[in-house]
Design a protein around this nucleic acid. Structure first.
Length: 489
RNA sequence: GGCCCCCUCGUCUAGUCAGGCCUAGGACACCAGGUUUUCAUCCUGGCGACAGGGGUUCAAAUCCCCUGGGGGUCACCA
């Protein structure tokens, strides 16, 4: 009970990081960081056919991106190394041997065909499919002889009678009748261990004190608890986290859109927004504060405060948070984060952006109120990089410009007047322009709408005097000339 | 279907463990105004929930029971 706090995340390297895994990792990490515990990363690669080294790398990278660090893991080692399950197989087999000796596990010679038929028959009778205990009562010595002779077999756990109860940290008391628990397979026919078996071996050997995992594992808990008992090992406390749900209220899956962390990174979500959002799924700081730092999170987090019900993933709220975080960045940071997206969009290469860094930062600063994701910037600033005579006119912008009476004449006159003006002081230019408009008895939109169209081609956007300052006199003049021609047609 | 879990605004949640402070708070979304050269940001306001029914109690979103609904899981996957 007073054992040191040790938590872990044990992903299987069979793909990218699912958002659910990301949240589970965050909660485990916070539980450890908030109270001086140890956070362990263990790679669950027992399914050798599906596990890949690339996936393992991607997972570590993804976790790092989230800002999660681990005290022990495959890359940093630790006192309970190795941290890759495939490398712990001797330990697993040793435990299996012990269990056979004690009679808590038995060899099962039923082949796949028999089990398939058994299941089919049970389903036909509308019974719950489960192992019928065919090999449960085999004489151990006889079974050992058959195994020795090379007869293929699996190793099953002998589930005792009774019931299994545990106190889940988020759900409270949960009870299962042991009769509902199958005599599950611990070692496959090829001798490889299964998940429920290794997870207990490893958690026990690594002294894991608390297991925080998704609710889909709730039904595995009695199997694992029974194994701890058979091994006479203290069991960890369990906490089953509510599931992340799609709009259909089922477990969030690929069909619901982007479910892997990499997608969000690639789509230009600020990472702290993703973290903050994930924290909000099943947990709240105080019920009022929506935006908080990693530090505030780890300080306040307690798995016992996690809610029980699953949460429907709200993409709108994530987008809102993304905007909030994006706007909290300095111009320099924001520009830095946007560079890859601007380059990917083909607007400019890195060298050019580096060369015009000050200019680029001003461009970014201008647009920060209008984007929520880094990836949204390129479309907004593309006009800066367009040839002056063929800026793309958005239909809405063009329509708005054309409907102004005398738009072309106003533009012509303004162009002429502008030729002698200093564009580098937007404020001053704005004032002089207003005076110019007043002199001619023109309303502001009469000039601004055609002007915006000619300069940017967009229906909305930043202050036009600032745009002109960034565009420079030549581009402004050329765009006005082109606009006068194009809007006059 | 069996077993297990869950159920507060459309969504994320506070409040539930220690019943009264809750005529149920916040946020996203939505709607309406305001600010603005436009778009956006921002500001103000509005809409909107204790799944239903029984109990217990002076008092229930909070405790108990039933019903309903949703989900998870039933592999030699993890």
């Amino acid at each position: 009970m007073t054992q040191p706090l040790r938590v872990r995340i044990a992903p299987s390297p069979t793909g990218s990081i699912h958002l659910g895994l990301a949240r589970t990792a965050l909660f485990n990490w916070a539980q450890a960081r908030g109270r001086g515990g140890t956070f362990v990363l263990r790679i669950e690669d027992t399914d050798r056919s599906r596990s890949t080294a690339e996936s393992e790398t991607a997972i570590l990278e993804g976790l790092r991106w989230l800002g999660i660090d681990w005290d022990e893991g495959p890359d940093v080692g630790g006192p309970y190394a190795p941290y890759r399950q495939s490398e712990r197989i001797e330990r697993h087999l040793e435990v299996a041997r012990q269990l056979v000796e004690r009679g808590d596990a038995y060899r099962c010679f039923c082949d796949a065909d028999r089990l398939r038929e058994l299941r089919a028959a049970q389903e036909a009778r509308k019974e719950t499919p489960r192992y019928d205990g065919h090999c449960r009562t085999l004489d151990p010595a006889e079974a050992a002889r058959r195994a020795q002779a090379g007869e293929p077999h699996t190793l099953r756990f002998r589930v005792p009678a009774g019931e299994t109860t545990f106190d889940d940290l988020v759900r409270g008391k949960v009870t299962f009748a042991n009769a509902e628990v199958d005599d599950w397979v611990m070692l496959r026919q090829d001798g490889s261990p299964t998940y429920n078996f290794v997870v207990v071996c490893d958690d026990a050997q690594m002294r894991i004190s608390h297991v925080l995992r998704g609710e889909e594992h709730l039904v595995n808990t009695p199997k694992q608890l029974l194994l701890y008992q058979a091994l006479e090992l203290p069991s960890p406390r369990f906490a089953h986290l509510p599931l992340l749900l799609g709009p259909n209220r089922k477990k969030l899956s690929k069909r619901d859109g982007s479910v892997s962390l990499e997608d969000y990174r690639a789509q230009g979500y600020p990472r702290d927004a993703v973290v903050n959002f994930l924290c909000l799924q099943g947990w709240a700081l105080d019920g009022e504060t929506e935006i908080f730092s990693r530090e505030e999170f780890t300080r306040a987090f307690d798995v016992r405060d996690v809610s029980k019900g699953g949460s429907v993933f709200d993409f709108d709220k994530l987008a809102w948070l993304a905007g909030e975080y994006l706007r909290a960045e300095s111009d320099a940071e924001l520009a830095e984060h946007c560079v890859p997206f601007v380059v990917a969009a083909g607007l400019a290469d890195e060298e050019e952006l580096a060369r015009r860094r000050e200019w680029f930062e001003r461009v970014v600063a201008q647009e920060r109120e209008r984007i929520r994701l880094y990836s949204e910037l390129p479309a907004r600033i593309a006009f800066y990089f367009a040839p002056d005579d063929s800026v793309v006119y958005d239909p809405k912008a063009e329509k708005g410009a054309r409907k102004r009476e005398g738009a072309v004449q106003t533009l012509e006159a303004y162009r002429e007047w502008l030729a002698g003006q200093d564009l580098t002081e937007p404020e001053a230019l704005g004032e002089r322009t207003r005076a110019w408009l007043a002199e001619r008895g023109l309303k502001l939109p009469a000039l601004f709408q055609p002007l915006r169209c000619a300069l940017t081609g967009l229906p909305g956007g930043p202050d036009l005097f600032q745009v002109m300052a960034l565009l420079g006199p030549e581009a402004v003049d050329a765009r006005l000339a082109a606009g006068i021609e194009r809007l006059g047609e």
